[in-house]
Design a protein around this nucleic acid. Sequence first.
RNA 1: GGCCCGUUGGUCAAGCGGUUAAGACAUCGCCCUUUCACGGCGGAGACAUGGGUUCGAUUCCCGUACGGGUCACCA
Length: 545
Amino acid sequence: MSHKELADLIFPNAKEISYYEGKYPERNLTEGAIVTRYAPSPTGYMHIGGLYQALIAIKVAKQTNGVFFLRVEDTDQKREVENGVIEIVNSLKKFGLEADEGMISSEEGKGNYGPYKQSQREEIYQAYAKYLIEQGKAYPCFCTPEELDEIRAKQEAAKIRPGYYGVWAKYRDLPVGEAIEKIKNGEKYIIRFKSGGREDKKIKHHDVIKGNVDFPENDQDIVIIKADGLPTYHFAHAIDDHLMKTTHVIRGDEWLSSVPLHLQLFHELGFKPPKYAHIAPIMKNDEGNKRKLSKRKDPEASVSYYEKEGIPELAVKEYLLNIANSNFENWRRANPDKKIEEFDFQLNKMGVSGALFDMVKLLDVSKIVISQMTAEEVYENAVVWAEQYDAELENLLKDKEYAIKVLSIERGNKKPRKDISKWSEVKNNIIYMYDENSLEYSYPDAIDKEDINEILKLYIEKYFDISDDKQTWFDKMKDLAEEFGYAREVKEYKQNPDAYKGHVGDISMVIRVAITGRQNTPDLYEIMQVLGKEQIEKRIQNAVV
RNA sequence: GGCCCGUUGGUCAAGCGGUUAAGACAUCGCCCUUUCACGGCGGAGACAUGGGUUCGAUUCCCGUACGGGUCACCA
């Protein structure tokens, strides 16, 4: 009885591995080109952490003229969610992170190293599992889940390391003949990897991000093929990243402690291992404790949150890049007009521990991104967002010509306003330019209430002329101020505050509040030009009590 | 609990044996400004802790505390 017979019995139809080795040749890439991948499980909505990983992976691949591919890891059918794959594909697309190869819909992929969905690669895994069995490096294990639980319970009771290893690996040394007999009798089994590792020996590993890390060798006989015939993550990772020629495995650092196992698997399979870059997760402060951003508890963990809020994709990417390479910020300030693609990203400059997600900072990045857009761009984005999430705003934006005028105020110059951080704020930012009947008037306390009506009346009767240029309008404000005992210049007032009731700024504030219902608006002159003569007259009349 | 990893201002973070310990967001003040912003200038604010090693430790070593990860027929 030989290992070969056992292997043939278990996987009678599996091909020779040489078939696959030949089918997927080395990639013809230039020196230094990096091949990366994003390999999510289709288990629900896309997580911001996934986007983060994908962004980094694609950045690294692109800037070295390498390849970035999307592989779907759906070996756990129990957790799979309907439309999970399409959700991932669409999310990536929305953020402009399209893969060179990989899944493009639920079932289809593109590229020469596919299939890119693990459930479609079953025969490949089985071929390699068969190869390992033939080599005596893998074997069938007949333990039931209940038996495994018992073993673990015993180990815990005895306070020793749990797991399937050493003397606890019940079937690792079962004579081949007996294994064959059990299989022929119809006993259920899974395939385990036969580890030659020793827990008391250390391996050294250099992680691109984490640096040098020492681990004990792996001595666990982990399962490689499950009862359903599909591989576990570890096995699929080794096979796929070898066959797909991944050079850098960029993944969450929850995998760091699996590195000894993975290296061992690559070695036993005769593969050249990839470089590993383990990314720290994005954290959230939860009552003093740091924890991973959680899809269940934190709405901002889902990428769909940003869409709903109307935070531009570019802002999210810039913020993420900020977290990933802190020198990005300096680069951005020095190169405000350059594209993200031009930034030289360095994996080894990534922080080793997880950063707390900072919404305030994200919104600041977003403000800058939006402030650099033209009125037209802001308009288009706001419309797209409003169609989906805000019917009222959508309605306001119907009159495109007027909307563009409104959005153009203090935009497009060298120092654009930064008062919109997300599309959901646009309505509040422009609504007073539309509805003159729902304004609320709240004047600064410093202004004598008695004066307000008189200022407004006099302004409209004596000074208001829509055709005034800015300087004339300006001078008239000063005249008006003087007429009411307010200083023409702020400086004059400050030098001699007792001589005046206030200064010209107070007067223009009165006009501003009357016209817009706000104390905080962009340049008043420009607003008045957009509003037009009739509107202004009407608004000031409304404001007069 | 075992094994890994980490700990610089409120947050993100540079620095990696000798620095006045960068910068950004947030915060405060001033200036500019008709107003609101923008912008400019400035303030406050940090090397978890105890031992070593060293002429000298934020930087190196050990311990402690705290935080994170991992120990599945899940990824």
